[in-house]
Amino acid sequence: MVISKAIRDQIEAENANYPRARGGLLAALHRVQREYGAITPEHATALAPIFDMTAVEVLAVVSFYDMLSSQPAGRHQVRVCTNLSCSLAGAREFLREIENHLGITRGETSADGRITLGHEACLGACANAPMMRVDDRYYEDLDTESARQVLDALD
């Protein structure tokens, strides 16, 4: 099965919170992506009937949101905020240094499949720049050295 019984059960339990199952779609997409690394066309096909949608609609939703992807990516999502407050605090130089450190540019995944690097529109940590999000965790008030330590510790 493209989506395991256990995941499917969790999805259906979540859907019960909404007047229409489709309210649970974003939660399901987060879940599938966490479990399988991406929401592939096969996942979309499996999800569509649960939400009374077409598979193409599922992928169209995926394509709208920055946190969702239909393409497999690295094990860890690293996002550096580069909006104005962070830029004023040197976030763009910071991002370039991280790029140099990882040997990839934003939008790319490291050769070992460990890290996909990107920049973010604003993460709501404007007073603590530079900062980055690693998966679900925020690292704030960073400098290049402390960021390297965080990144190097990732499996």
């Binding site: 066309p41 979309a44 077409t54 598979a55 193409v56 609609e57 992928l59 169209a60 394509s63 709208f64």
Partner: peptide, 21 residues
């Protein structure tokens, strides 16, 4: 039949199909 959808966002929006359909 709903074959078509808009993919992407902003000025990256395009009309498209499900892969293989």
């Amino acid at each position: 039949t709903g074959e078509l959808a808009v993919f992407g966002r902003g000025d990256r929006s395009v009309i498209g199909l499900f892969p293989g359909v």
